[in-house]
């Protein structure tokens, strides 16, 4: 039983390493090849854990070979558009100017129900309001609605304003986050002053975010896990 325990630990380590090697792209939207790799890795990893007569290396080598192939294929796809279209396919227009392209839908084996469900997920309930609907290589549907059907933007209303920088994470679970730039260092020093004024220490804080202009949001730690 201890053998199984250690094998599971080692394989967890190697799989994590493999997934990290594949990069953040793997963790987001999956291309068909990436989806296949993910399933294969999970199946292969279970073999040496279930059967202790199989050498561990028979689990580790295939995982890393698949990861390496995926990375190489991704690298080639970056350089070659043709190769990319062979591996991942191309986006396909399925709606244009409110009209569904039935031929493309049939080619994709995409049913009308699938299409309408994808549109509804993007708050589009009327096909006639769609200017373009494109099925991406990941299977997701991207929609752009006709002018006058999509939500109004501040630009269209001639409203002026500034681009806002998102708040920076300053404190996480009672500890200051490591400074990565001059900006974060400045925000951190402002945060320390802010905490002093509030008679708080960093250990009292569960979460703290801040902006350059000195606006801070604090979530204090509580004993029972409920934040305030």
């Amino acid at each position: 039983m201890l053998v199984v325990f250690f094998r599971a630990l080692f394989l967890y380590f190697f799989i994590t390493l493999g997934v990290r090697l594949m990069g953040k792209r793997q963790l987001g939207e999956l291309q068909p090849a990436e989806f296949v790799i993910a399933i294969l890795i999970s199946n292969i990893a279970s073999l040496p854990i279930e059967d202790t007569s199989i050498p561990m290396i028979i689990g580790i080598i295939p995982i890393f070979v698949l990861v390496a192939c995926e990375v190489i294929v991704s690298g080639i796809s970056l350089k070659s558009r043709r190769f990319r279209s062979i591996i991942s396919g191309r986006p396909v227009v399925v709606i244009h100017d409110g009209v569904i392209d039935q031929k493309n839908l049939r080619t994709l084996r995409f049913s009308v129900d699938d299409l309408l469900a994808s549109l509804r997920q993007q708050n589009v309930f009327d096909v006639s309001t769609v200017w373009y609907a494109i099925v991406e290589t990941t299977g997701k549907v991207s929609v752009i609605q006709k002018y006058g059907e999509s939500p109004v933007t501040s630009k269209e209303l001639n409203l002026t304003g500034e681009n806002e920088t998102p708040p920076t994470l300053v404190v996480s679970d009672g500890k200051f986050i490591e400074e990565t730039s001059k900006e974060t260092a400045l925000i951190q020093s402002q945060a320390k002053e802010f905490l002093k004024r509030k008679h708080l220490t960093v250990r009292d804080v569960f979460l703290m975010t801040g902006t350059k202009d000195g606006t801070f949001t604090i979530v204090k730690k509580t004993k029972k896990g409920k934040s305030s």
Partner: peptide, 15 residues
Amino acid sequence: MKRVPVAISILLIFS
């Protein structure tokens, strides 16, 4: 793109 040389190295080492 550094991942590609690492991946090729992994393939070579394991082979």
